[in-house]
Design a protein around this nucleic acid. Sequence first.
DNA 1: TTTACTGTCATAGAACAGTATGACAGTTGG
DNA 2: CCAACTGTCATACTGTTCTATGACAGTAAA
Lengths: 134, 134
Amino acid sequence: MIFQVDFKSGKPVYLQLVDQIRYAAAAGALRSGEPLPSIRPLAEELRVNRNTIAKAYAELEGQGVIETIPGKGCFLKKSDSPFNKPVRQKLLAAEIDEAVVMAHHLQVDREKFLALVKERLDYFERKSDAKKND
Amino acid sequence: MIFQVDFKSGKPVYLQLVDQIRYAAAAGALRSGEPLPSIRPLAEELRVNRNTIAKAYAELEGQGVIETIPGKGCFLKKSDSPFNKPVRQKLLAAEIDEAVVMAHHLQVDREKFLALVKERLDYFERKSDAKKND
DNA sequence: TTTACTGTCATAGAACAGTATGACAGTTGG
DNA sequence: CCAACTGTCATACTGTTCTATGACAGTAAA
């Protein structure tokens, strides 16, 4: 797993990492139980402060994506949804609304939008499957 | 059009307004060419500084949602996409990916996800249609 | 136990975001 | 022209966010 940070993007480094790890987990590049790079070496590699990595990991733990075992390290959680069904749906609906509103402003019609959604779903599924069979 | 701000939500007031106006435009509650409330009266009504409203409007202008005519006021733009087709698709794909990744972490499967997307699309279409026929 | 690794916490400083005030410029109608 | 309205800009204050440093605590193996 290779991470990249862009210092001039304006986006906080720790959030860039959070996103990358969430994406990697969703795309299957990181799998359940797999260990994440430990904080200090990764910080050195990315030329970033230890605590910046630590903050990213802490955020991911808060989101229920990873799990940290004191003295051992951080690992990808198996089942990573700490929320119940109605809360899940509400969170997800809000996220989807963002995309729907944007589609409207960009003048992308319903059919084009649905096609794009399916394309993105396929993209993640392909990536995930490819990883399984290696 | 009535706006509401929540001071204890943690979310910046000007961004709350940006979202509300974008949503209102997408849902048809605000229509092309329609004037937005002028800055000072709206600021007074919401008990907010003038510049907070001004910032929200400036942000919306940057996004191509509204248009401001010096000395006259701010108006909803007719066709509000200043981007070309490939850029549009890329922006939208990124937004959709956010939702797809979240769906994965919340363990919402493909079919459920697609159903939810359709439901949200319908929701906005209904709102928009209702407004047209009044 | 010692050493070398894991993550954690308290603290501090720099940069940024959010908001507020006052002075300014364009438009419209009396 | 003048008054009352529109949005704009420069500036400053405040609180928060982001990053960095150093000391600390748990785990594992020699």
